[in-house]
């Protein structure tokens, strides 16, 4: 049985790949399909998966603000709030941005570099 973390990842991958909103049933079927052929990393995720488990995963993702539910339809249809690229950009903005407490949140190998510094370093690189 896959962990909730792995399932969240697999569900998000499906939602990011798919064009339109999907119900928990559809997602469960897609997850089960992905188990058939490969023996790879994602392969073991969806085997014998209950729809309630998928719903649990979806509500966790909804709480995290990653997934939204279409109102008024039954069964509920879910879709990703933003694309994979948008979320990656959000991460990079936090890493590279100049938010005042960024330095306390995470430690970068190289902090902000001025143009002069970058130039000096590139010359250095050419020399070595």
């Amino acid at each position: 049985m896959a962990s909730l973390g792995e399932l969240e990842r697999a569900v998000m991958d499906l939602l990011w790949a798919g064009q339109e909103a999907a119900t928990a049933n559809t997602l469960r079927d897609l997850l089960a399909q992905s188990t058939q052929p490969q023996d790879g990393t994602v392969g073991h995720v969806g085997k014998d998966l209950a729809v309630t488990t998928v719903l649990t995963v979806l509500s966790r993702l909804e709480r995290k603000g990653l997934v939204e539910r279409e109102r008024g339809t039954r069964p509920h249809r879910y879709q990703a709030v933003s694309s994979r690229a948008d979320h990656t950009a959000e991460l990079m903005h936090e890493v590279l941005g100049s938010a005042p407490d960024r330095e306390a949140v995470l430690a970068r190998f190289i902090g902000s570099v001025t143009d002069n510094e970058a130039e000096t370093l590139r010359k250095l690189l050419g020399r070595s």
Partner: peptide
């Protein structure tokens, strides 16, 4: 000469930690 893509970290204007790398 400075042909750094502005989206690259090398070009992000220095705040606070500028000078640390040097």
């Amino acid at each position: 000469p400075s042909d750094v893509d502005p989206s690259q970290p090398g070009a992000t204007g220095g705040t606070g930690s500028a000078g640390t790398t040097a």
